[in-house]
Design a protein around this nucleic acid. Sequence first.
RNA 1: GGGCGAUUAGCUCAGUUGGUUAGAGCACCUGAUUUACAUUCAGGGGGUCGAAGGUUCGAGUCCUUCAUUGCCCACCA
Length: 889
Amino acid sequence: MTELPKCFNFKEVDAKWSTYWEEKNCFHAEANPEKPAYTVVIPPPNVTGILHMGHALNNTLQDIIIRYKRMQGCEALWMPGTDHAGIATQNVVEKQLAKEGKKRQDIGREAFLKRLWDWKKKYGGTIFHQLKKLGASCDWPRTRFTMDDGYSEAVKHVFVKLYKKGLVYRGEYIINWCPRCQTALSDEEAEHQDMQGHLYHIRYPFKENPGQYLIVATTRPETMLGDTAVAVNPKDERYSPFIGQKIVLPLINREIPIIADDFVDPEFGTGAVKVTPAHDPNDFGMGQRHKLPMINVMHPDARMNEEAGDFQDMDRFEAREAITESLRELKLLEKVEPHNHAVGHCYRCHTVVEPYLSKQWFVKMEPLAKPAVEAVKTGKIKFHPERWTKVYLNWMENIRDWCISRQIWWGHQIPVWYCVGDDKCKLECREPIVAETAPEKCPHCGSTNLRQDEDVLDTWFSSWLWPFATLGWPIKRSKNQEARSKEEADLKYFYPTASLFTAPEIIFFWVARMVMAGYEFMGEAPFSDVYLHGTVRDAQGRKMSKSLGNALDPLEIIEEYGADALRFSLIMNSGQDLFISKDKFEIGRNFANKIWNATRLILMNTDLANLKELDDVSQLDLPSRWIVSRFYTTLDNVSSAIEKYRYSEAESLIYDFFWKQFCDWYLEIIKDRWAEPSTQQVTLMILNESLKMMHPFMPFVTEEIWQNIHPESDALCQQPWPTIKKDHSDTTVENTMQTLLEVISAIRNLRAQWNIAPKETISCHFTSTNPEDLKLLEANSPILKSLAKLEEVVIDPQLPTIPNAASVIVGNIKGIIALGDIIDIDEEKKRIAQQINEQQKAFNSLSKRLQNANFLQKAPADVVEKEKERLATFEIKLQKLEQVLAELN
RNA sequence: GGGCGAUUAGCUCAGUUGGUUAGAGCACCUGAUUUACAUUCAGGGGGUCGAAGGUUCGAGUCCUUCAUUGCCCACCA
């Protein structure tokens, strides 16, 4: 008999097992043809990341499925790693530099990158330690980084491959430019927010007739300095006479034409639009259609440049004020109206993004999107919940080219070289040299004076390769045959992965692009299921964020409630978005403690020698058969809930079974029968198998208990998932037990109503019209006595006449309890009448339904049958109740 | 402007193809306890399932409209 501490001491236990699992290498997976593979790749957290609630939720979900599949006999691989997170990481080190009063340019690219790598070495592993505290069962020795050597090979390989296929191109277009980070951004990286702005109506004088104006409306007057036309709709009769005429651009006095373009909406503003091809994507399009000059009026940091005349060197917003003021003085400002519109912001630093003309690298997306659309439409890839399918398809079907070059230093430098050349240079030397390794000389002129493209690639251009680049793709030719074939086998075995768990925010950034990359480079979908979980919010529904100061730190929760509590509570709340406050974690803490104390009770009362498989359950008593049956039914339901990605449902099933049924009923029922070996056997078996079933959800407490019970055996995380034994599930047993439990509840109820203290002794006489019930009551009278706190139970086909008795009616069973002086006949009448009332309501609605010819005709036969049975039960119960009432009268 | 959700007990939410008298946890109230666990146990009150129509033998569940609310996408200057 073992004695455990009184409470589950998670502080010591959690740390012990994370270390143990890691040291014993419990989570390592290797290609094993004997077993099916089950792979999940972690959504790589940023290398700057520290664990937040979103991570905790995301990784708990993955850990549950991975531990479950591992126990089910799969070779389960959970691939860990981090993302270099270009701009985010660079920002961290730039801030450090700023404290020293330096900019990155001051120390140069090489020194700057060294600092970044140093930083990464020192802090980049933080999140892994935190994930281990959470219990994440990743295959840690496989940990990858999106900028490690092999991974960089993959990125270069992909760039070159796509370039050769014509899917990567370089061009000068309007892109989203962050003036603070001084880099291009993709469309997805520009976050649109509604802002209160103004619509400025400006008079543009005609050249031929300076007293007359055309009024244009704009939200950004500072860009007018770069105007190269004014556009109107060709069908707009107000303006058609002026098409082709010249306008003099105020402040700059440049002559610009009035052009006609369908893009212009005559309803909006004045119906006349200033055209600034270098500072607006729409205007850029018009500029190309009409072959307009493009005049860039800003420096990369959004100060006005030399094209801006008097406004040179002003910041863009300063210039907006100044220009408005000048126009007002010249009486060229018609009016200014308030105007709300969406303005793009940098997703990293929230600076207002400038549409900016610049030369960048792009990926042509349409050909890549095709198979990715197909895969989802045909169900090869499924989203959970399903509604995200539409979101994905909508984006894919309207896909635009992807700007992949960034003007920062931290990242994969673009594998492109330019011939800087000399006199011997030919025209072809202007062509970029695209290669996986640095070329020695220019293929055209032979010059060795080459310069690599200074830009780096978008972080997501490496993340989209994550599901296969982490598995060693592309296999290097240079390696020896043996190593190569091992790597090939590994890749083939673990790819494609099974399911992906992530947040809906990155469907476009990451999920969609991974699907495209999977098809393009591996010829296969990277995963078959995508589970998108909710956002973790605070109690008021606001997103948890550091800047709002409303974030709960998962590490603090682990410290205070334990990792199991954190995991269990998060999943319990994880239907849609999660609204979390600290007290939400009590449920998990309490449950872990309940498991602990149930174990404590069992170990105090049993001999572990009794722990063995149960083959024949038919000889067991009713409650034992009931709990065994309940366990296997629950196990079956839990397994299918996990398979269907219904995690909170799986947890409720476990919670209800273990706490309400096993602890509150079964362990109470057998309280006086610990001495019987069969009791010990059943109890130990249920505990043992429940530990396995609960382990994926609460790995620490279950592992600790397991090792206490089985000091000689393997860790719980390596045990097989319990086999579902259908023959141990028995609905008849469950229903019979249900009746018994109802009788007990009814008597407890009666006690409460009559205010009878538990110590007060009462006796009950039972009868039933069904002989089976009598047998049942007879056989279980000790249980009845103990749980309903009865002095005596008499089974009596003929009930005696007892004055001052209260009645208990459950189905066919009737019990009477002599209450002597306590009873107030009128009260008892009321009580019975109330019960009759309730029953009558149900009876009426049901009998009405059964009298309806349409119902009998149209409803399915089994439904009708069931309803008839129900009606019969109601009828009997009603009769009994009425009989009791009559006797009282 | 387009798309996707949400609305069920005081609070947070389950409720899987329509079919028992709509459930759980928390909170609240009553009671228990020489206790495996006060991180416990037994019991109780509390809901015309956002509103109005419709389909159906039958609607929390399906359809339409509306209201409130959240999120995503979007180049009307």
